[in-house]
Design a protein around this nucleic acid. Structure first.
Lengths: 144, 144
DNA sequence: CTTCATAGTTACCTCCAGGTAAGTACACGC
DNA sequence: GCGTGTACTTACCTGGAGGTAACTATGAAG
């Protein structure tokens, strides 16, 4: 089995400035928010600029407020671009950036792995359900 | 640049049962929780069983309550094992599973990529800060 | 004068993650 | 009989994510 090279990981972390460290955490935090990945993948699949209302149709269930917030954060992080057209009614187009697409490419293997290994997770669940899970001291009868 | 094969991804999703679909979401949700990855990586680095209190020392800042919850979820998902020893005071040992280690291996490339590309994110932030960001209709003067 | 379409913003509310602090059970050493 | 060590559980509290619904600006069409 492949292993994680923790030494190398640590070495890379040490090279980061305090601000960069914060930035990495922010990025990770952001992509773990409710609608972020879904929104990005919608934009990535389209490949072309999309209007706000169009994105909202594709990301089923999202509210205007959340979509605005999500897109703003993605723009701020350089993962999507936002272009405003001076028209009435307003037209605003969003498009995924190269950086954004690359991020998705990085994420994809792990998503794939998860899906292909669902059965192992299912098995673990079943096994867990069978355990009687008690506090340790409820069976503490033997001393050290 | 590498691209994501959306067709294949969709095809894989279609093969999942409704329960499996829920499960995948749960897994992803769980690993995006505050302490999950940190806790897992501590266990993975150790490679050996660790007591509750020892884990708590390594995962700086976590509360007892959160550690308990995190470990329970990891156990339920089959990512760590939990072994209770019938002693007083109690001894409980946690250890990462093969499944858990594999998950970390999947995640690592993306983490590495993020760290090596911080500068691009920094640049995006700076650029964003420079934009005057207004409502679209504040400059809507030209009709379509 | 009203309606429509678009892309927001804002006020208000609810839910839940997660923190703090105290309690619990047990045997041992003093 | 009191403190100590361990692995929890429980009650209480706070902040923030995210939902709903109403409001905003603008020009064209009716």
């Amino acid at each position: 089995m492949k292993k994680v090279d923790w030494e190398k990981a640590d070495a890379m972390c040490d090279k980061l400035s305090a601000e960069q460290d914060v930035l990495v955490r922010e990025i990770v935090t952001q992509i773990s928010e409710k609608w972020t990945l879904w929104t990005m993948s919608v934009l990535a699949r389209a490949g072309a600029p999309m209007r706000f209302s169009r994105v909202m149709e594709e990301v089923e269930g999202i509210s205007q407020k959340s979509l605005t917030k999500t897109l703003r954060q993605l723009e701020r992080g350089g993962l999507v671009t936002r272009e405003v057209f001076a028209e009435v009614p307003p037209r605003v187009e969003y498009k995924i950036t190269k950086l954004g697409e690359e991020l998705l490419v990085q994420l994809h293997p792990m998503w794939l792995w998860t899906v292909t290994n669902v059965k192992r997770f299912e098995a673990a669940r079943l096994k867990y359900a069978g355990n009687g899970r008690k506090n340790p001291w409820t069976r503490a009868r033997v001393s050290r």
